[in-house]
Amino acid sequence: MPAHKPADHPAVSPYLLVADARATLAFLAATFGALELFRKVREDGSIMHAEVRIEDSLLMIGERPERAAALCGSTHVYVPDVDACHARGLASGAECISPPADQPYGDRTAGLRDAEGNLWWIGTHLGG
């Protein structure tokens, strides 16, 4: 086992800096079934650092400093059912930027924009 990282962490993990980590964590749980693994809260109650697992992947989240500019990310997530995941995302307050559609490269994909402005590209591989 490599000593340079925790055993249950991949070598690369997206890290989102958001204004409202609690809302982002709720969105990830409702949309992707994200399981919260860790949360470090500052004295003022803001979330300094949180980690969630979505299937075999880890996503890190922290609340950006009050005066820091918004940073938006773009993340792709393979899911078992794009249509159901897209619907859960919409029900969680996300905006549709691309409705579910079959693609010529063998995936069914869709796109969501969360309340923080992050883009979530979701896909289910159809084979081929």
Rank of each mutant, 00 (worst) to 15 (best):
L126A: 12
H125L: 05
M60S: 05
I122G: 02
D56S: 08
W120R: 06
I122M: 08
A30R: 12
G117L: 03
P2F: 11
A68D: 10
F32P: 01
A21G: 09
M1V: 07
A21M: 01
G123M: 01
A30T: 04
R88V: 11
L28R: 05
Q103M: 15
A21N: 06
P80C: 08
A30H: 07
L59D: 09
P99G: 11
G127D: 12
V41D: 14
A30Y: 00
E43Q: 06
A34D: 03
R53G: 10
Y15E: 04
H86F: 15
S92I: 02
G93S: 11
G117M: 00
L90V: 14
G117D: 02
D8T: 14
H86S: 04
R42Y: 03
V41E: 15
A30L: 07
D83F: 07
R53C: 07
D44H: 08
D107R: 02
I122P: 01
S98M: 15
S98D: 05
W120S: 06
M1K: 07
P99N: 06
P80F: 00
G45S: 03
I61A: 02
A34W: 02
I54V: 14
L37C: 08
R88H: 03
T24P: 04
R113L: 14
L17I: 05
A23V: 11
A30D: 12
W120A: 04
G93H: 04
V12L: 07
G89I: 06
L16T: 00
Q103K: 13
C85G: 01
D114M: 11
D83I: 08
D44V: 11
L16M: 06
G111R: 04
L126V: 10
T109W: 15
A110G: 05
S13E: 13
R22E: 14
E51T: 10
L25C: 14
E63A: 02
G33Y: 03
E36P: 02
L119Q: 05
P104D: 08
L16E: 00
C72V: 15
T24I: 05
Y15S: 02
G117V: 00
D102K: 12
I122Q: 07
M1H: 10
E36D: 03
D114A: 11
A110R: 07
A69G: 14
L35F: 02
A34R: 08
G62T: 01
A69R: 15
A29K: 14
S74N: 14
E55R: 02
R88I: 13
L17C: 05
G123Q: 00
